[in-house]
Structure formats: structure tokens, C-alpha cells
Amino acid sequence: MNEYQITFLVEDINASARTAKTLHRLAKKFKSTLCIINITRNRKAELSKSVAMLQAGLVKGDLCQIIVVGIDAELACFVIKNIIAEHYRLIGACINYQFSNQLADRVPELSLPSKTQWHYAKAQTKLTKFECLKGLAQLIHPEHPEELMIAFIKREEYSSTCITPGIALPHVMFDGIDHITVAVIASDTPIDWMSKMGAVHLTIALAIPTKPTHEQILTATNLSRNLLCGQVAERLLMTKNSVDLQALLMYFMSRLLP
């Protein structure tokens, strides 16, 4: 059964007190299971329990998701989204927002210390590892993708860049770019990444300049290091909305989780 998510940032610590009762009451009205996940602090609680918001322990700046699984999940999300939007900074607030370079303008809490370019594609067909790397190179460097693709392949020859089950992080330092560039390909069908960790569903390509600044290195390493924290990898894999996915990635690049 599909999981639906509402992704949001906590701006006001008192919002939990104001929403706890309403969310708890609403959660009991749906057949679906509703959970709140505090991704920053690796906490999860079922909203049907009265102490859920206390358990989640939301603090200003925390990145959270409400996840809904069940037959009326879409309807539950639709209803709860309005309450969340009133009290928290909702990420995918408008249906036509795209994976874009402007997300930080709309949500300044997600802005990164160094300029970053963003690209996203959803695989429409079954991909091989080579096709996926080619696709990522085309997203990042559409004029001359060959060189970048070779760089990705050379990196894979050392060792697979599958860093956690389901997620690959092909990463290179590349001459042809001035800023950090992130390209994501999400695939419903598994891609054989020739790794002991198994196939992947999400590839996050990172290209950074050959002479990176300290900030650029920190931004890139924050993402990779956070991938091993708590529920980060699971949340990235489960989040299907591209804007929410970009928000998660930007959040994980902007700081090291506690």
C-alpha cells in the first residue's frame, strides 16, 4: 500500500501544543495509520496516541513528516495538510512546485552555504546502471555529458557508490562545473548497481568542482554522513514527491543531524 507524506519544518515550538489535540482527534477518524516522524531527532509516534506530539519532541528547525498508510490515506493527507500549513512551514505547499533552484528562496531555512544546482528525473522505464549514470550526466551537463559520464564510470570502477540499501551516491570532482550540482533519478523498478548492498531505487549524483571550497566540501559531506543517521535513508526512499525529496536533500546538506 502506498505511503503518503506531508513534509514540514517546525518554526514555532508552541505549535505542537496547539495542534496535538486536533491531529490526535483527526487521526482516529481515518482507517489509515498516521504517524509523525521527527527526522532530525529520529523519533516516530502514532498520531492516534494522545502523547504522539510529545513523543515526537518537535523543536524549532526540526524537519518532520506525517506519513499516512491505508485505504483513505490520500483523503487523510488532504485534510491534515491544511492544519499543518496553518502551524508549520509546509514544504510542498502548492501542487505545481517543482524540483528547482528556487526552493531555498521559498523556504530560507533550507538555504545552503554554497550555491547548488538541482536536477531531477523520474525513470519511466527500467534502467541499467550505465543508462542511469548517462542520464545523471545529461541532467548535470547537458552540452557535453560524455566526460562527466566517464568520470562517474571511473569512480564506480574503484568501488560501487551504493552507500546504503536502495540508494546510490555517484560522486565526482569535475572540471566543467563551478558549483555543487545535484542530480536525482528516482526509479520504481530496481536498478542493478553491481553492489553487495543490492539494487537501488534512488540515485543522487553529486558533482563538485575540482578545486572545491571548504563550504562546498562540507555541504557534500553533510549529505553523505547524514545518510547513515536514523531514518534518513528510509525517508529519502519513501518520499515520492520531488519537492519534498529536494527539501530533505537540502536539509541534510545544510547541517549534520544530532
Partner: peptide, 13 residues
Amino acid sequence: CPTGIAHTYMAAD
């Protein structure tokens, strides 16, 4: 690791 931005720090952590 070859690039030094991911695996090095992940493995250390």
C-alpha cells in the same frame, strides 16, 4: 576513498 567527499567520512562515522 577516491573522491574523498562521501565514503571516507561515512565509514569513519
